[in-house]
Computed example of a mutant assay.
Amino acid sequence: MSLYRTELRRLVKRRFVRYLTLAGLLVLVAVAIGMFVTNERIGPAQRAAAEQAAERDYRQNVESAQQYRAECERVAATGATSERGFPADCSTITPTPRESFQAQWYLPATFDFQEEFSTALVIFAAVLALVVLLAGASFVGAEWSSGGMMNLLLWQPQRLRVLLTKLAALLTGVLGLAVVAMAAWTAAFWGIASQRGSTAGMTSGVWQSFGLTGLRAAALVLIAAALGFGLASLGRHTALALGGVLGVLVIGQFGVGMLLSMANVRFVEAWLLPTYLLAWMEKKVTLQNYDACQASYTGNCEAVTMDITWQDSSVLLSVSLVLVLGAALWTMRRRDIT
């Protein structure tokens, strides 16, 4: 019997992997349902209601300004405007211009596929990456803790071949899940945009951009699965991968972030992992430092910026993957099964 097919079947049959995958898919379904419920297609009725709401707020603003000015003039007659907080010249109290009440600000939320689907892909990648990281850790970690790995090595004593075959089976299953789930995710949000928003402006260039974002999402999911697999292989237990994730989130993110903030380090976000994951998905993240500025040609003080690109993220992800998997393979070859 093929070792690869055996491991692939074992991956599919694991109850923890099944339940975890189901939970992740249910989270994605809940997100899609929430987007459907909270968005609305904009038509003539919605635009008319927005115009009425803008006009109503403008009239209320005019009425409030008139009442405030009348009160100011009444107090000014007693000469106590400064004591009551009114300006010295009550004529400066004027209502906000009508142009400040734009009808578009009163329109209900609507899902524009061209503008917002990239954000939906980021959510998809984040949820699925967490799921497969835990699934990958459990897939190999349970084998060590239950003694199944030792029995397997008696049947197939080539340690590296066994570990790499398990990894290949894991990545194959994860890739299949990612492709099917992403196709369903795209179809679901296309339906949401058709019923509760707009699908206008979808050119071939936009589809190509979404396709590249989808490829980066799939790559991130595969990397997460491999990292979870590698961490659990190093510690020979699923708990090591979970502890590593918690350590990165709690110590590496909150702790380091607070420490750098207290030290007044510029661009604290540049030291945090989520920034690089977001840059990987969105191609670039621009950080801004409002504590420092640089003079522009107009004389204005503009915030200093720093760009984190997907190339920077690819270096971080590649180095992490090589270190974790390399260490897992090295320890597998070095240790004896006892």
Rank of each mutant, 00 (worst) to 15 (best):
S91D: 09
G197T: 04
P87M: 08
A53G: 10
V180E: 06
V174K: 03
M202A: 08
W207T: 01
S233M: 12
A137D: 02
T94L: 07
D112R: 11
V248K: 01
T78Q: 14
D307A: 09
A279D: 02
V131F: 02
V62C: 03
D112K: 12
Q156L: 09
A45T: 06
A103E: 12
T81Q: 13
I251G: 07
V179D: 04
L277C: 10
R84H: 11
S296M: 11
Y58H: 12
S233T: 14
L240P: 01
R9F: 10
V75L: 03
V75F: 08
Q294K: 12
V140T: 08
L273I: 15
A169G: 02
W155S: 15
A188V: 07
C293W: 14
Q67V: 13
A120V: 08
Q52V: 15
L259D: 02
L273N: 06
V319H: 06
G173R: 00
K13Q: 14
A183Q: 05
E40H: 14
L26D: 05
E55I: 08
K166E: 03
Q46N: 11
L249M: 13
C90W: 00
L133V: 03
V29Q: 03
A48M: 08
A32H: 02
M150L: 15
V12N: 11
V324M: 07
L316V: 14
Q294E: 13
C72Y: 00
Q67P: 07
A217R: 00
A263S: 09
L287F: 01
S320D: 05
G247S: 06
A200E: 15
L22S: 10
Q311N: 12
M149R: 06
A263H: 01
N300F: 13
P95D: 03
S145M: 09
L234A: 06
L277E: 09
N151E: 12
L20G: 13
T338A: 15
W144Q: 09
G211E: 05
S64W: 15
G173V: 00
V245I: 13
L28A: 06
A327T: 10
L240S: 07
V174G: 00
L128E: 06
E116Q: 15
L323V: 15
L220R: 02
R15V: 12
A49N: 12
C301R: 07
L107E: 07
E73V: 01
W144N: 11
N39Y: 00
R98P: 08
I42G: 04
S313F: 08
D57N: 14
R69D: 04
L325A: 04
T172V: 05
G141I: 00
T96Y: 11
R18T: 14
E71R: 14
S146F: 08
Y19V: 15
D307I: 06
T238H: 11
V131A: 04
N264L: 06
L212T: 07
A48R: 12
T94Q: 12
L133C: 05
R59M: 12
V304D: 03
K13P: 00
E282N: 13
A137Y: 02
L167C: 04
M182V: 08
L164N: 07
T94P: 04
